[in-house]
Design a protein around this nucleic acid. Structure first.
Lengths: 179, 179
DNA sequence: CATTGACATGTCAGAAGTTACATGTCATTT
DNA sequence: AAATGACATGTAACTTCTGACATGTCAATG
């Protein structure tokens, strides 16, 4: 059992999916990252497959069955459930996530006013698109509890961002770029 | 001139600081990451010094002067300004940032209701702390334009998160964990 | 004059994440 | 029977990020 110093959030995400939805293959898990987990954590199959192998080596998951076409069905072990529970209860996320959007917002005042305006308008459109996407997702699940708090958080986030962009655009227009 | 395929946001952040605040040393820039840029992008000196060396090799910045105690004062070049401008005007941030908070929110329903409640309460406290911090920062700058949109975004974000946590806690209490 | 602490720059090993490459299975359609 | 496309798993090279180690300067204090 490796003793990790990193944040190992990918591990946690995988354990969470296996715990919530039952046994699954790397392929299944990759699909879930593309759908339900897409607005929460991103990972491609090239990161997922090696991680699953390490997790199996660490005893957090096991290959219970091998299905068709070489499918390996992973199941979470008691050790895995333990690790997941410990992280959820004991880990307090503190680091501010790196955000390219915030970086662009930070630096936008360096541009000529018309350019800054164009950047903010583009951002607003991106946020609006994202909001629509999440609201569509929300309609589909409605009352399903698993993931509902995160979806609500995502929707509020997108709404807030649209409002911020709208107000920033207005501010920029009002000040005529005199910052 | 290396041709980068990555997102190179650290580069952009450094170019932005050099463009906005004028020539600075690696040490100065590290301090700025700790203060003004802390809620936007994080980087330690062990990442900053090597990046500055690469950027100088690529002609985006130059060492104009060497100050006391081996201080190297970097200045942005026209090529550097170009690269910064191109990124701000032409790059549309699309990837959803990885958020440990959102991951924890997503997985919280796997916990026993009382445990989930404790997790949400802890998150709420973190957000409130963060909000206070940013509001203090806001008082200090008030009208300084550079970074003001990003600061506003951060404050709205924190406020939204406090509201989300409050409502989620209420929802969890109301449903008695029956998700 | 010795100590302390802020100033100042770097390297290194390892973890995490991205993109492209590589391989092969199975069911459906042409 | 061949081609297509979803299914399925992996590796390799590279970039990015973190934490620890390493070194030395200079000013103020005791």
């Amino acid at each position: 059992m490796r003793s990790y110093s990193g944040r190992m959030s990918l591990r946690i995400a995988l354990l969470g999916l296996l715990s919530a939805s039952g046994p699954a293959s790397g392929y299944d898990l990759t699909k879930k990252f593309e759908t339900s987990l897409a607005h929460v954590w991103q990972a491609g199959h090239s990161q997922i497959y090696p991680e699953l192998a390490k997790m199996a080596a660490d005893g957090l998951i096991t290959v219970e069955a091998e299905g068709a076409r070489g499918r390996k069905i992973y199941t979470i072990t008691p050790d895995g459930r333990d690790a997941l529970h410990r992280w959820l209860v004991g880990h307090s996320p503190s680091a501010v996530p790196r955000s390219e959007i915030a970086l662009q917002a930070f630096l936008a005042p360096l541009l000529e006013p018309e350019e800054a305006l164009a950047v903010l308008e583009r951002m607003k459109a991106t946020f609006e698109e994202r909001l629509r996407e999440l609201e569509r997702l929300g309609d589909l699940r409605s009352k399903k509890g698993y993931g509902k708090y995160a979806l609500d958080l995502g929707i509020r986030q997108a709404r807030m961002a649209v409002g911020w962009a709208t107000d920033s655009i207005a501010d920029l227009k009002a000040s005529g770029g005199a910052v």
